[in-house]
Design a protein around this nucleic acid. Structure first.
Length: 648
RNA sequence: GCCGGUGUAGCUCAGUUGGCCAGAGCAGCUGAUUUGUAAUCAGCUGGCCGGGGGUUCGAAUCCCUCCACCGGCUCCA
């Protein structure tokens, strides 16, 4: 009678089985298709192989390729096969770790002296990998004692595995076998290697043992595998699409920005079209900010080292700043501004503040400079000089929530106007079990955290809450945005700060005539102008929203005869606040259209004999084609209504 | 900073077992053409082959070094 156990499935259904049933057995009783596709399982929260017997009542979840957990098991298993392949192709290689990652997996290995893996070796690795995979070798786990495990790897001279095992508890150590290959492993595999039908070695890179740059550098081989050849092809298409959208490529093609070796790496040069676009973004935000009660300030590009010692940035980020600049006579030291907030604190202190003055909201498009290691630089997303759409709100503790709501509304407005429709707000709170590492009183933290949670609750947005992700100086809210091809970016941020008001001894006089400390809120809806433009460029693939795009329309005369008419049309459009150009070259209309299409100009206005007679324009939309005839007024109304829809 | 890769005209790229003056397409310039919804034709200009050093009778090509760019160095058996 006690031989039977109850298995509870995720939908709450309860089924009865004989003790010792495996997840695979259960899958078979549900459906044949599921049994064919099931890759791994979770029994009472623990990831197991589908062949692991279940001996007692349990909650069971089955995973296929469509589940994150299924992919993880798939890629984890693939890492084993990669290890097997590398061991086969590079005798004497020392295996270290090889986890599944977001897109695929990697394996870190210590190659024998003199051996190097480069791109040319990928096909060989892929081929051998598939040979092994086709063996359909089953993965099987076996427990091993710590002594035996240590002995095995000591004999093999693999100091990395030895180090790993030394940190494990005896009785808790398992090996995984498949084919004739064995690796230290804690489990979570697919049934056999035969499920892996497609593999691509993506790249090879150096990686430090345990991520520590003082330790030995290993060779990391990245790969991604799939259960169907078709899946791999689709993935490669997606990568191609990402490549086409690369902001560095589009930035060059659309003449938005460039870099110069001579100016210095990581220092972007904004070209006229890019600068105009950025200015439009700044004006757009600034207009909203003025309406929301912000006051613009301007502060210099350098500041005394003392300023940053006071703020604490020098102690924490001194190493990440450029070397101080010294005045020749007095030997005073200045730093290139790495942060705007200390300057804004000094502006707050310019005069005594009353509780009636708060909140004080100081905003600045402030350019800052940070020393990023040369290998960290990347297009516009990681640079050494960039401009933050920075503002600091100095308010009373009881105003935090209201201010937060206002900032959230500002961020939502910005995201909407730029066609970012898929985003999540991440609330980062204190780690409740380790309150020591945070500055500020318990009471203030509780108040601020509650304020953020409540503020987010007042708006209808997707939210996740992360404990322990708060900054040491306060909780924060970050906006994680998904772009058009599904990649996630962190954009806007709102952070509460108790630290700087203390360090700068900021005060206001309360209604009780006593001095109080204000709370500071840092916020940047874009984050940095450089990074934001990069993300936006990749999101929209260079086709910016109409209100932002460099040229909204280009007038294309059919022949030189209509050039003057075209210029007149452009003047009329300019009067309606529409910007554009006339293509006056003596090219055929097909060529003019092609060039405008490639420049991603949203509207092409064709002007020839018919139009000259009828007083209308033939309108063509980029990427779509002919829209028919419009009078200038009709077109202007059409454009301005489309823009208004974005901005309201 | 470290590992691997790359660097040839404004752009995209060919040329590398060392060997005549380093090539193409696009862009640019000049001229012809006066055009109806994604490339009109012809001619011309344009390069210290990333910088420096070396090997050699001879280097874009081989070696050393520096610089920049690309991918990674966070994902933990």
């Amino acid at each position: 009678m006690s031989n039977n156990i109850i298995i509870t499935l995720p939908d709450g259904a309860k089924r009865e089985y004989a003790a010792g049933v495996t997840p695979m057995d259960v899958a078979m009783t549900i459906s044949e298709g599921l049994a064919r596709n099931v890759l791994s399982a979770k029994v009472n929260g623990k990831t197991v192989e589908v062949s692991t017997p279940i001996t007692a009542h349990a909650h069971l979840t089955l995973f296929t390729w469509n589940d994150k957990e299924g992919k993880t098991a798939f890629w984890h298993s693939s890492a084993h096969v990669l290890a097997q392949t590398l061991e086969h192709l590079y005798p004497g290689v020392k295996l270290t770790i090889g986890p599944a990652i977001e897109n695929g997996f990697y394996y870190d290995v210590d190659l024998p002296a003199g051996k190097v893996i480069s791109d040319n070796d990928f096909p060989v690795i892929e081929q051998k990998f598939l040979e092994f995979a086709r063996e359909k070798a089953e993965f099987s786990m076996k427990p091993v004692s710590k002594d035996d495990a240590l002995k095995l790897y000591k004999d093999a001279g693999n100091e990395f595995k030895v180090e790993l095992i030394e940190n494990l508890t005896d009785g808790d150590i398992t090996f995984c076998d498949h084919s004739n290959f064995t690796d230290l492993c804690r489990g979570g595999h697919i049934p056999n290697t035969g499920f892996i039908k497609a593999i691509k070695i993506m790249n090879v890179a150096g990686a430090y043992w345990r991520g520590d740059e003082k330790k030995k550098q290993l060779t990391r081989v990245y790969g991604i595998s799939f259960p169907k050849d078709k899946d791999l092809k689709e993935y490669l298409v997606l990568l191609e699409e990402a490549k086409k959208r690369d902001h560095r490529k589009l930035g060059k093609e659309l003449e938005l920005f460039t870099f110069s070796q001579k100016v210095g790496q990581g220092l972007p040069l904004w070209l006229p079209k890019g600068a105009a676009l950025r200015r439009r973004l700044e004006n757009f935000l600034q207009k909203q900010q003025v309406e929301a009660g912000y006051e613009m300030v301007i502060t210099p590009h350098i500041g005394s080292k003392e300023l940053y010692i006071t703020s604490g940035h020098y102690a924490k980020y001194g190493k990440d700043s450029f070397q101080p600049i010294c005045t020749p006579a007095e030997g005073e030291e200045f730093l290139l501004k790495p942060m705007n907030c200390p300057h804004h604190c000094e502006i707050y202190k310019f005069k005594p503040r009353s509780y009636k003055d708060l909140p004080v909201r100081l905003a600045e498009f402030g350019t800052v400079y940070r020393y990023e290691q040369s290998g960290e630089l990347h297009g516009l997303t990681r640079v050494r000089g960039f401009t933050q759409d920075d503002a600091h709100i100095f308010c009373r503790p009881d105003q935090v929530k209201e201010e937060f709501v206002k900032v959230i509304d500002l961020v939502l407005y910005v995201l909407n106007a730029l066609h970012f429709n898929d985003f999540t707000a991440q609330i980062s709170l204190r780690d409740p079990s380790d309150k020591e590492k945070y500055i500020g009183s318990d009471e203030n933290w509780a108040k601020a955290e509650a304020a953020i949670v409540e503020a987010v609750g007042e708006r209808d947005i997707k939210t996740v809450t992360e404990y322990g992700e708060a900054a040491f100086y306060g909780p924060k809210l970050d906006f994680m945005v998904k772009d058009a091809i599904g990649r996630s970016w962190q954009l806007g941020t709102i952070q509460v700060d108790y630290n700087l008001p203390d360090r700068f001894e900021l005060e206001y006089v309360g209604s009780d005539n006593a001095k109080h400390r204000p709370v500071m809120i840092h916020r940047a809806p874009f984050g940095s102008m450089e990074r934001f433009v990069a993300v936006l460029l990749e999101h929209c693939a260079g086709k910016f929203p109409l209100w932002l795009t460099p040229e909204q329309a280009v007038v294309l005369p059919i022949s030189d005869k209509y050039n003057e008419d075209a210029k007149q049309v452009l003047r009329l459009l300019n009067n309606h606040d529409i910007r554009g150009l006339v293509d006056e070259r003596s090219e055929k209309i097909g060529k003019k259209i092609r060039d405008a299409e490639l420049r991603k100009v949203p509207y092409m206005l064709i002007l020839g004999e018919q139009e000259a007679k009828s007083g209308k324009l033939s309108v063509r939309k980029q990427g779509e084609g002919d829209l028919g005839s419009f009078t200038i007024e009709e077109f202007a109304t059409f454009i301005n209504e489309a823009i208004a829809a974005d901005l309201n």
